[in-house]
Amino acid sequence: MVLPFAAAVALREQDIVLYECARQLYASYPDLPSNQVTRMMSAQLQLPGEPGGACQQQGLHYIYQQTCRTKECTQCIAGRKAL
């Protein structure tokens, strides 16, 4: 997705207006279709349901790609603090 990249560039360039616009758009981006990873991660993390919004859904994909897929549970960012 281009919005996180736009926010990163805005921070680097100290463009607060662009950063806030990208952040708000990304946070409000609608749900993506449910898929195997979001369903599995929601169950694994014992969430009451699948998260809403593309930002949170992509967060589950990130956690899966970084630690779950390679079975590096001790490195999981979801376990660093209580959910």
Rank of each mutant, 00 (worst) to 15 (best):
Y29K: 09
Y64M: 04
R23N: 04
A22P: 02
L18A: 14
L47W: 01
Q44G: 07
S42W: 00
C68E: 00
I16T: 11
Y19R: 04
L32Q: 14
Y29V: 06
E50G: 04
I63H: 05
E20D: 11
Q24H: 06
C21H: 11
A54T: 06
V37N: 03
E20G: 08
S42F: 01
I63Y: 06
A8E: 11
Q14K: 14
R69C: 06
G52F: 04
D15H: 03
G52I: 05
Q57I: 09
A6M: 07
A27W: 01
Q46V: 03
Y62N: 15
A54P: 01
I16G: 08
G53N: 02
A54V: 08
A8F: 07
K71C: 12
G52Y: 06
A7Q: 10
H61L: 09
S34D: 10
R23D: 05
L11C: 14
K71L: 14
P33I: 07
D15I: 01
N35L: 03
A6R: 07
P51D: 11
E13T: 13
R12W: 05
R12D: 11
M41Q: 03
L45K: 09
N35I: 06
R39C: 03
G52T: 10
C21E: 11
Q56D: 08
A43L: 09
D15K: 08
A27K: 07
A43G: 04
L45V: 10
Q66G: 06
V17Y: 02
A8N: 11
R69S: 15
Q66T: 15
A27F: 00
P48L: 04
A27V: 06
A8Y: 06
G49H: 12
L18H: 06
